[in-house]
Write a protein that binds this DNA or RNA. Structure first.
Length: 505
RNA sequence: CGCGGGGUAGAGCAGUCAGGCAGCUCGCCAGGCCCAUAACCUGGAGGUCGUCGGUUCAAAUCCGACCCCCGCAACCA
């Protein structure tokens, strides 16, 4: 089976990474870990988008060379990925040599196929937007977004014949009903396509912008940032340089992106690939945005959440858990400290952490800490729900499936009263109850592994197994009841998630 | 008539495609339990399903009109 190739968008390197990118990294990481867990060979790519005049300007403001500036931002993004425990296999920066080479090769290929032409273009250019504006875009003669006057610019640019792909894209959309998920986001693109495609300018004169990849054969122009950035998905696997690697990983199984850049990935990117005679990706997964306390995050509102701050305050796994449980992939979700602490205390501390503690402590007390013999219990339907949810990118439902087991077990304890059974001379019944608890926890640990791997490892240790032992079996086997070996010793460790003392309002 | 998403208990949401007892989580109230992290379990209160009209034995769900909120409108993650 072809390796599962997954990418995030590459984040624009003009500022410290945003919480939204943290979310995107986690979504992709959870999916990557899920497929690894189910036995697939996975390659996970992320990186930074580093060209364009906004960055050029920012660097200038900071008094730094563009390359120095973007390397610093890229280092912060790597740090974020690291602190979030993201298991990416590669990290690409578009200012890297390998990317330049691929982009050049890509451009040449598209040019040779006849999809690039040169045209004089005269218009009002907004530096902030890096784009030309029409008269009717302007409000009181200034750009409505940046409140700055636009400059009258005339230049010769290279254009990409996007219009030539109208029908091919329509056909693609028709043949591949799940090319873009969720459906609502796909419908938007279909609508966009229906309104017609125009050719787009894909270069800028070096008079207005020097920081970019030069157009092959024309030093007077650099390549437009999107036409350059999208190519990262194939430059990172050796497009134009390493055909074997390309064959191994391409087409990508899924590009994970935010809703604001859907059109670039669902319209422009497939058209570019078709133009170059390269296969299009399998799927575009469009996720929503995080709001902060119910409001859109923005710098002007001053309510932007800093991922580094949240990480240092609450830790990696609680943050990963919250994001995946509370912010459904297919829609927007809200982040608030109140909700976060509720989730933490209820789900992680009270329900899961406490359950583990109960199960292990009683095994210690009544059975001398030895895992008893196997008794039957049906986890099959939970696994079915779980797998379906994860594969549909409904990670919150996947976690809910795991928590269904946790809740069942908490009820089960009250129902069976093992503290009474434990005092009997005949330990048969209490052994059955405790085995059920410990083994159920093993299944829970497996299910939450893509989201909270470290927590899973701790659970394994506590119930008398280990990551190493568990990793020896594929998910299919692990999902069978009875995988916990009788006779092993449980190990009552520290509390998994000590409760957070919530602040009084 | 630019496009899309949404309005269901105090909060957050599922249910709407395929009409059939209005559900889940949190919070609140009462009780139980004593293994456990003041945790766990059970029960309860709380909803004219945005509004008006239509179809139907039956509407949160289908049809029509309207009101309100949010987002997008070619580079905000």
């Amino acid at each position: 089976m072809k390796p599962f190739y997954i990418t995030t968008a590459i984040v624009y390197a003009n500022a410290d990474p945003h919480i939204g990118f943290a979310l995107e990294l986690i979504y992709a990481d959870v999916l990557a870990r899920y497929y690894r867990m189910s036995g697939r060979d996975v390659r996970y790519l992320t990186g930074t988008d580093e060209h364009g005049s906004k960055i050029s300007r920012k660097a200038e403001e900071a008094g730094k060379e563009p390359k120095v500036f973007v390397d610093e931002i890229a280092a912060r993004v790597r740090q974020l990925a690291d602190e979030l425990n993201i298991g990416n296999d590669d990290f690409i920066q578009t200012s890297e040599e390998r990317h330049h080479k691929s982009v050049e090769a890509f451009w040449k290929r598209v040019d040779k196929a006849g999809y690039i032409y040169k045209k004089a273009y005269k218009g009002l250019y907004c530096v902030g937007c890096e784009s030309f504006k029409t008269e009717k875009d302007l409000v009181d003669d200034v750009c409505p977004d940046h409140k700055t006057p636009c400059e009258e610019v005339e230049e010769e640019n290279y254009f990409f014949k996007l219009s030539a792909f109208q029908e091919k894209l329509e056909k693609l959309y028709e043949e591949r009903p799940d090319f873009v998920v969720p459906e609502a986001k796909f419908n938007e693109m279909k609508q966009l396509l229906k309104s017609g495609l125009e050719d787009i300018s894909i270069s800028r004169s070096t008079k207005v912008l020097k920081w970019g990849i030069p157009v092959p054969g024309d030093d007077g122009q650099v390549i437009y940032v999107w036409f350059d950035a999208l190519v990262n998905y194939i430059s990172a696997i050796g497009y134009g340089e390493d055909d074997e690697m390309m064959r191994k990983y391409w087409p990508a199984d899924i590009h994970i992106i935010g809703k604001e850049i859907n059109r670039f990935h669902s319209v422009l990117w497939p058209a570019m690939l078709m133009a170059a005679g390269v296969k299009v990706p399998q799927q575009i997964g469009v996720h929503g945005w995080i709001t902060a306390n119910g409001e859109k995050m923005s710098k002007t509102r001053g309510n932007v959440l800093d991922p580094f701050e949240l990480l240092s305050q609450y830790g990696t796994e609680p943050l990963r858990y919250f994001m995946m449980r509370e912010i459904p992939f297919h829609s927007d979700g809200d982040f608030s400290i109140k909700r976060f602490e509720e989730r933490f205390n209820n789900d992680l501390a009270n329900e899961l952490g406490n359950l583990l503690n109960r199960a292990v402590a009683m095994t210690d007390r009544y059975l001398g800490g030895v895992v008893p013999a196997v008794v039957d219990y049906n986890v099959k339907s939970h696994w079915t729900d779980y797998r379906k949810s994860m594969e549909d990118l409904r990670f919150h439902d996947g976690l809910a499936a795991a928590w269904q087991i946790v809740r069942d077990m908490n009820k089960f304890i009250d129902d069976k009263k093992p503290w009474e059974l434990g005092k009997l001379d005949d330990k048969t019944e209490v052994s059955e109850v405790l085995y059920t608890l410990l083994e159920a926890l093993r299944h829970v640990a497996w299910m939450i592994m893509p989201v909270t791997p470290e927590t899973s490892y701790k659970i394994f240790e506590a119930i008398g197994t280990s990551v190493v032992e568990q990793a020896q079996m594929p998910m299919k086997e692990a999902a069978i009841w009875g995988g916990l070996q009788p006779g092993a010793k449980v190990a009552l460790g520290e509390q998994l998630f000590p409760r957070i003392e919530t602040k009084k309002e």
